[in-house]
């Protein structure tokens, strides 16, 4: 029995590794959409940041510098999205599509022109290196808690961020203003809230969070950038945000359910017999998306977004 404990802990640690990038993306979506700006560019932002993080780390030899580069590109992309959608009331979906398409082309271009390779970058200094992990040795032998003994700093940051974001959104004036802007911007304006300022802030912060998702992939899980990043993780984040009812803890819960589907799939592949073996792999992979549609229909829980989500705000003159 005791032999199972390291295995169990390793599995949970692996699930957390899977969770962190998606969680960052989902939290980025929560931030932006609570202020009424839809962001389907989470995927593209992750791709940009994953690359820039590796680039920064490659140039400096220091993962922290890479982190800063990733945050920098997150701010830049957030500012671009906000400039189009908030300043000029452009269509939020079109702007998101533009960023996603740009991410596809531009990152492949930069990958080949900077590292002279196709498909992947050379390995760089990263947070997943044994020395850079957060060591909590006293937890090691304990079932379940032992999974937290050796995690990257980015995973810890993602988990802490859930609490922080919940606190900011529901227990501070700023959070109240953000949600007011997302629900009814005209009413918020009447009460003296600067709608544009709040939206700019939320979009850029959300974009930086999505950038952390990309960084968690390239500097947390792996130590390099691969051209197939972010492999749809941004879209799973989007699904998790919706399934989690546009709240931080909801998003975390949704991702844990999705992660269970992943674990279940691995388990079933290995040991299933009889009927369970008939369930194809594709079913488990598409489960997150089916559950999300289910939540929107009201079959699995209930998902209702901010009232003014996706509607460009224009001052009445």
């Amino acid at each position: 029995m005791n032999n199972n404990i390291p295995f169990l802990n390793a599995s949970i640690a692996q699930a957390l590794d899977y969770t962190a990038p998606i969680l960052f993306a989902a939290l980025g979506g929560v931030m932006s959409e609570n202020a009424g700006v839809v962001n389907i560019a989470l995927e593209g932002m992750m791709r940009f940041a994953a690359f820039f993080g590796v680039w920064g780390s490659f140039v400096s030899g220091n993962a922290w510098v890479g982190l800063l580069w990733g945050i920098g590109i997150g701010i830049a992309l957030g500012a671009l999205h906000a400039y189009i959608t908030v300043k000029w009331a452009g269509n939020q979906i079109i702007s998101g599509v533009a960023i996603n398409v740009m991410a596809m082309g531009m990152i492949t271009y930069l990958l080949e022109s900077i590292f002279k390779t196709t498909g992947y970058s050379p390995p760089v200094a990263y947070f997943g290196a044994p020395a850079s992990k957060v060591h909590l040795t006293f937890l090691k032998g304990i079932p379940i808690l032992g999974a937290f003994a050796e995690l990257t700093i980015l995973i810890w940051f993602a988990l802490i961020l859930v609490v922080v974001l919940h606190f900011v959104l529901y227990h501070t004036v700023l959070g109240l203003r953000i949600r007011a802007v997302g629900e009814n911007p005209h009413a918020a304006e009447t009460l003296g809230v600067n709608v544009f300022k709040i939206k700019w802030f939320a979009v850029i912060t959300g974009s930086v969070l999505a950038a952390f998702g990309g960084l968690a992939l390239s500097l947390g899980t792996l130590s390099s950038f691969t051209n197939s990043m972010a492999m749809g993780k941004g879209f799973i984040g989007l699904a998790a945000m919706i399934f989690g009812n546009w709240t931080p803890f909801g998003a975390l819960g949704a991702i844990l359910i999705f992660a269970c589907a992943q674990v279940l799939q691995l388990f079933m592949q290995g040991t299933a017999t009889g009927f369970a073996k008939l369930i194809p792999l594709g079913f488990y992979l598409s489960l997150p998306y089916m559950l999300t549609i289910g939540a929107l229909i009201g079959v699995v829980g209930k998902a209702v977004g901010p009232a003014a989500d996706g509607i460009p705000y224009e001052k009445e003159s």
Binding site: I84, W88, G90, V101, M102, A103, M104, G105, M106, Y109
Partner: peptide
């Protein structure tokens, strides 16, 4: 010209971006 063949995606992405900015 040592340019990856995904280069048109950059043009395409910017075009869509400018169209999103069509009000401007």
């Amino acid at each position: 010209a040592h340019i990856p063949k995904t280069f048109p995606s950059i043009i395409e992405g910017f075009t869509v971006g400018f169209i999103a900015l069509q009000v401007l």
